[in-house]
Simulated scan of single mutants.
Amino acid sequence: MSLRAHAVDPDELIRWCREHLGSPPVEEMFRSGHLSAVIGLRLADDREVVVKVRPDTPRMAACVEVQRRLFEAGYPCPRPLTGAAPFGGDVATAEVHVPGGAALPSADRAASVFAKAFARLIRLAPGPDEVAALVPVPSWAAWDHAEGGLWPRSEDSDVDLDEVPGAEWIDEAGRRARDRLRAGGSDVVIGHCDWLAGNLRWSDDTLLVVHDWDSVIAECEDILVGFAAALYSTVDADTLATVEDTQRFLVAYGDARGRDLSADEGQRAWAAGLWTRAYDAKFQHAAGQPITSLSEDEARERLRCAAA
């Protein structure tokens, strides 16, 4: 697999900050990122900002608009400082740096507070018709892609997962989950499709900040909830939800929104969570890595919960 590492020209970064933030950087505080370069900077005017550079896609401007609208509604996300502005052949955005916080809330309330924060996000987010189209959808959420075959192409690999032999149980789980998702559906809303612990920070059980707003999509509510319920963590930032954790999240989400998930919504949520976990498992298998996103026994149990 050929990973697309993202290099950032330092002179271009200085020029971009001068033009779009009115001040050049004087210190790099940190640098991280996978599909993009995320750079924490202290500017000459003493502001601390985060500049994110990634390949340009049509959805970037809409992602920033959703983040801006949520910030203005009081949701704990960094305040955007720019729109999506050209950066060489890529695009960059800037936001206020929000430091600190813990990766997880208290263990005994994790499902409740993760679900409550997710329900609040969906409640405060603009309607899908209020912003530009949030497409293309990130690969790990693109269960209904139009590429042909079962699996969409990954953003960070040129490998066609449908051409990778082996791990038939992963393909079967993904296929059956996708078939269940194609039957019915709840209202389309805007939400976050990468509800990993690494993207959230907590102050005790209070949500301090949510990051990675490139991961907002417009999708059926039950599917978004299913992604979140399968991806959040209760014990450490690198361990995904167990079957029991997912069940607790789905119950807590219903409590948070004031209406339990219907039987159909619950089954589709289970199917969505299984699909995204199976996609990651297929990617891990293709890369020759240990399969940590899903086990065969867990896939079987999640399929049972999804009535798939």
Score class of each variant (00 low, 15 high):
108 D>W: 08
60 M>Y: 02
75 Y>L: 14
30 F>W: 07
72 E>Q: 14
40 G>Y: 08
80 P>Y: 09
112 S>D: 07
28 E>Q: 04
52 K>G: 02
111 A>C: 05
100 G>F: 05
53 V>C: 01
80 P>A: 07
84 A>I: 01
69 R>I: 06
141 A>V: 06
89 G>V: 12
16 W>D: 13
98 V>M: 06
65 E>Y: 09
84 A>G: 09
124 L>M: 07
63 C>P: 02
75 Y>T: 01
76 P>M: 11
88 G>Y: 07
42 R>M: 00
132 A>V: 03
127 G>Q: 04
144 D>G: 14
119 A>H: 13
42 R>C: 00
50 V>S: 05
21 L>Y: 10
36 S>N: 12
89 G>R: 12
106 S>I: 10
41 L>T: 02
19 E>T: 14
35 L>G: 11
77 C>E: 10
119 A>R: 13
40 G>E: 09
27 E>F: 00
148 G>I: 12
74 G>A: 05
79 R>F: 03
70 L>D: 10
104 L>R: 12
145 H>R: 05
47 R>Q: 03
124 L>Y: 09
27 E>G: 00
57 T>W: 06
88 G>V: 04
92 A>M: 02
16 W>P: 10
56 D>S: 08
156 D>C: 13
110 A>P: 14
127 G>I: 02
153 R>W: 10
106 S>T: 13
155 E>F: 15
67 Q>P: 12
41 L>Y: 03
115 A>V: 09
141 A>G: 07
63 C>H: 06
42 R>P: 00
146 A>V: 15
129 D>I: 03
140 W>P: 11
147 E>D: 15
41 L>H: 06
60 M>H: 06
128 P>G: 00
136 P>F: 03
